[in-house]
Design a protein around this nucleic acid. Structure first.
Length: 556
RNA sequence: UGCCCAAUAGUAUAAUGGUAGUACAACUGAUUUUGGUUCAGUUAGUCUAGGUUCGAACCCUGGUUGGGCAACCA
């Protein structure tokens, strides 16, 4: 295989396996979420990895819900996970559930008991934890470890039959209480939980633990490459132990480093806290790193897939610059977003030599980056306009290519104007800017011979419509909130959401009613929010444009 | 003071015993009716000490640093 791009370590393993005709060259991966929360950008990395490997090596990928803990899992999460995976652009081969295998897993457990490799332990959770020892001291057996096979068989059956209350007994593997790997010190296989399960209802009151369910589920499905995150490395020995002792299909587990990203948190627990404690409005709040949040924010599946491709895959702990994600969405939107003019912070501009009552319809391209231009729309022009307050300065610094006394700029798709005067109120605030325009400088038909450095956006006051605009910024003020002293929530950015209730938009934009991304010229990329209604448009800012001028100003 | 994993520019990620490369970020400049885009360029890296070798980011040993492991969570 002659690839220009180098392979990541998983691709290397798979290509070697294919070369050695392992599993007849077959590749089958799986994405195994637990349905107890919403998917986030870190899951996107795993999804792109698993489905991507399946595609690349002409294999398949299953979606398997790891639903072995009914006390935290809900159908709501299953639906959102399926929606998010599909939205990202992936198609699973089979939709499966670990709970589909409960009967089979039970018989696996019986097999282990019969081989004297598992036993029922009546100790409490605390007693078991204590008897396990510590990483530096070996564990000791509880006296239940010596139970006979017959007794274990009987007790385990009674556990299933519901004879015992929650916590009364557990089934444990009998491995090695002095293993340096804590996970091999007689790990728990089954616990009693008299809880309704969203798929098996009340059929079961004992549920398998992750370690006893995951690997066997992989084996049952004949998964060839079971890819998980680094924290499961110590579980691998157990994973292989079960497969060996039960003589199952030899699925192999491989581990990669999970995604971390600057200025956000990624653990389900922390995200749940942000929602429950109302630091954000919902799981799909556009400030959340959840897939649903990113979607609502205006991120495209393509941009997220590109991001996951660019960050790579390795075994090293990482903290990816959120700037890379922002680069990926700008890159994508630059090619597709229609340009529109919107004034967020308005100030009135009067063109003194433009006839009162005159109107012109000016043409402007929807997207200068699209090969064919993607068409045009008309924009009404008149004597009085809204422009951005920050595009005028009373005392402009050098290289300020915008408006100031006697300075000239072009009004995008319209005329070149020159600032002649401005009006202040008693408080000293600038209320109006007075300009003259140059009739020969009309866009597309400019015979004036004048060249100006700056171009600014505008909206005709008489024709402007309004919309609510929600400006988002990073949710946290520090790069790695989870690693800071104290509570991560102390580092929440108080200005992560700024609402502009009344921005002026060009009339064409007021008719939008779809998910099309827009670039508000010179301001950023925006998309209609799900709260938006025909009479009350709401736009979310997906990301700002790169702003080198802001950087220059900041330095001064 | 046990076991396991990792260590390459600011952030990620390649180079698999033979020229340390790519992307983002940063910085210059050109182009531009978006201070956007595009284009050209610059800065900047092998944790450390030994060893093997003609030759080491890569192999070996010790150390250092970071991370993980003792849930009836996954």
């Amino acid at each position: 295989m002659t690839e220009e791009k180098s392979l990541n370590f998983l691709e290397e393993i798979i290509e070697q396996d294919i070369e050695n005709n392992k599993h007849g060259g077959r590749v089958l991966t799986r994405f195994p979420p637990e349905p107890n929360g919403y998917l986030h950008i870190g899951h996107a990395k795993s999804i792109c990895l698993n489905f991507g490997l399946g595609q690349k090596y002409k294999g398949k990928t299953n979606l398997r819900f790891d639903d072995t803990n009914p006390s935290t899992e809900e159908v709501e999460y299953i639906d959102s996970i399926k929606t998010d995976v599909r939205w990202l652009g992936f198609q699973w081969d089979q939709e499966l559930y670990a709970s589909d295998y409960f009967e089979q897993l039970y018989s696996f457990a019986v097999t282990l008991i019969k081989k004297n490799l598992a036993y029922v332990d009546d100790s409490t959770a605390e007693e078991i934890a204590l008897a396990k020892g510590t990483p530096t001291e070996p564990g000791v057996p509880t006296h239940y470890r010596a139970r006979s096979i017959e007794e274990n068989l009987k007790l385990f059956e009674e556990m299933r039959a519901g004879k015992y209350p929650d916590g009364a007994k557990v089934l444990r593997a009998k491995i090695d209480l002095s293993s340096p790997n804590m996970h091999m010190r007689d790990p728990l296989l089954y616990r009693i939980k008299h809880v309704h399960h969203h798929r098996t209802n009340n059929n079961w009151c004992i549920y398998p633990m992750y370690d006893f369910a995951h690997g066997q589920s992989d084996a049952i499905e004949k998964i060839t490459h079971s890819i998980c995150t680094l924290e499961f490395i110590p579980h691998r020995a157990l994973y292989e132990w079960f497969i060996e002792k039960l003589d199952l299909f030899p699925s192999k587990q491989y581990e990669f480093a999970r995604l971390n990203m600057t200025y956000t948190v990624m653990s389900k627990r922390k995200l749940l806290q942000l929602v429950n404690e109302r630091h954000v409005n919902s799981w799909d709040d556009p400030r959340m790193p959840t897939i649903s949040g990113l979607r609502r924010r205006g991120y495209t599946p393509q941009s997220i897939r590109n991001f996951c491709e660019r960050i790579g895959v390795a075994k090293r702990e990482n903290n990816i610059d959120v700037g890379l994600l922002e680069f990926c969405i700008r890159e994508d939107l630059n090619l597709s977003a229609w340009r529109r003019m919107v004034v967020l912070d308005p100030i009135k501009l009067i063109i003194t030599n433009y006839p009162e009552g005159k109107e012109e319809l000016l043409q402007s391209e929807n997207n200068p980056e699209a090969q064919n231009g993607d068409g045009f729309r008309n924009i009404p022009f008149s004597k009085t306009l809204w422009i951005e307050r920050e595009d005028f300065m009373e005392n402009p610094p050098k290289k300020f290519f915008r408006l100031g006394l006697n300075l000239m700029v072009r009004l995008k798709s319209a005329y070149i104007i020159k600032c002649e005067n401005f009006v202040k109120d008693e408080a000293g605030n600038i209320r109006e800017i007075h300009c003259t325009y140059i009739p020969e400088s009309k866009s597309g038909n400019d015979t004036s011979g004048i060249h100006v450095k700056g171009t600014i956006h505008w909206v005709s006051i008489a024709h402007a419509k309004t919309a609510e605009i929600r400006l988002y910024d990073r949710l946290f003020q520090v790069e790695n909130p989870a690693n800071e002293e104290g509570d991560f929530k102390d580092y929440i950015n108080p200005n992560s959401l700024q609402i502009i209730s009344k921005a002026y938009i060009e009339p064409d934009l007021a008719t939008t009613n779809n998910n099309r991304p827009y670039q508000f010229i010179r301001k950023g990329y925006f998309v209609l929010d799900t709260d938006s209604k025909p009479g009350h448009l709401i736009f979310n800012r997906t990301v700002t444009l790169k702003d080198t001028w802001a950087k220059v100003i900041e330095k001064k």
